[in-house]
Design a protein around this nucleic acid. Structure first.
Lengths: 225, 225
DNA sequence: CTCATGCATATTGTCGACAATTATCCTTGA
DNA sequence: TCAAGGATAATTGTCGACAATATGCATGAG
């Protein structure tokens, strides 16, 4: 018999399913950026009522993927370089803190898993050069696990359940495979080392520089256009 | 005639009204922490349908004031010292960044208003000592304006439209009027000075120390109990 | 007496319809 | 031709009812 810390399986509701599917379609660009959503049309497509659909839409608004105006409706957020830079600023701040906490709180086993993940990324990157997509997904996975390792539930909610979907949306649709692959890999290594050494202060600094490098990269590209 | 940057007044919907009212009631503790919300009961109280109520509730979930479980319903978040510390960590991080950006972006006029605000707070604090409530509201107002001054819309959303309602909830209900009044006032002064000097780096450091001092204050109080 | 089982009740999830608001288009006048 | 106004269509906001699920209680077995 298992101990009683067992939480009953949360029954998936229709709204849940549609929410997840719509989220993916928005992130991957199947539903266009900035486009207005027609409730009757979407409800028909998913074969659900408008009430159920609106439940899903309101949650997507909470994720920052949709915007809503009273009496007008929902609209997919528009992507802009300005917003991308804002996201980098916030990630720099929050993930820096997350990394500091991760250095304090991650177990030896968690750190080991993180290292293994990094090795896999590197192999992938060596084997299929140019497969920017996989590499970027791997990059976000790395950041994701560090945030989880911080143990701060609020940080986890803000980053993993809200911001990261926007980040993935930019990666899919802004198509900015950073030319920093090799540098980024070494930076990841150094970050893990700092976490392993339980050096929270250094870990924070390294993470902030890691992200701010990406931000500056975008800023430069913007200025040359 | 005004220029055409005029946005038509957004008509307040019933859900909007109920959302705002419920938010206040939750923040001020009129609706108890951790209590389960009965949709039929609330709908009857506001004389609206459950659909409209649920619209309002879903937005409150987005603010982090309610939690929802499928097939079970909404529940007011429970306050805990652990979560309060998590909030301090996140504020330390985000408001530090906001302060750095504010130093770069705030106009001379905005800074002047900030200074005036500080003077008013100080007078209040001198005149009616012990009016912890007003003083704390003034403190949050100070932080609020700096975040607005950062110009980063994402930061503004995360802090002003989500986290600050939770913060106010803790101030109302956890009743931790910090004994740091005079120290906090001087720290505010120094922060404004750094902003005025356009010294973003210092401004960030001062803000982080300002908030982390509050966090440590709570940590100490917790350990002595 | 305790615990499991099954029924009755209450609550949430979902639906379709109507009302209020917005968008579209057509007419009309300058 | 273009702009303003109004009628028409489409969309969102709101409502009440039914279905699916969870909760509470009574009953009975061990």
């Amino acid at each position: 018999m298992q101990p009683n810390t067992f939480t009953p399986p949360p029954k998936l509701t229709r709204a849940d399913t549609v929410f997840t599917d719509l989220r993916q379609r928005i992130v991957e660009g199947d539903i266009f950026t900035g486009s207005k959503l027609s409730e009757p049309e979407l409800a028909k497509h998913y074969e659900i009522s408008r009430s159920t659909l609106r439940d899903a839409l309101s949650r997507l608004e909470g994720c920052g993927l949709l915007e809503r105006k009273a009496n007008i409706g929902y609209r997919v957020v528009t992507l802009s370089t300005e917003q991308l830079l804002e996201i980098f600023r916030v990630r720099e701040s929050l993930e820096g803190t997350a990394c500091r906490l991760a250095a304090k709180n991650m177990s030896a086993e968690q750190i080991k898993h993180l290292r293994e993940l990094l090795v896999i990324h590197n192999q992938r990157e060596s084997l299929q050069q140019g497969e920017a997509y996989m590499q970027e997904e791997g990059d976000l996975d790395f950041h994701f696990r560090i945030v989880m390792g911080s143990g701060n539930k609020l940080l986890i909610r803000l980053l993993c359940e809200e911001l990261y979907y926007l980040v993935r949306m930019y990666r899919y649709q802004f198509g900015m495979a950073s030319p920093r692959a090799k540098k980024a890999f070494r930076e990841h290594e150094n970050i893990i080392q700092a976490i392993e050494d339980k050096d929270g202060e250094l870990a924070e600094i390294l993470m902030r520089r890691h992200i701010s490098a990406s931000r500056i990269n975008v800023e430069n590209r913007m200025n040359t256009l």
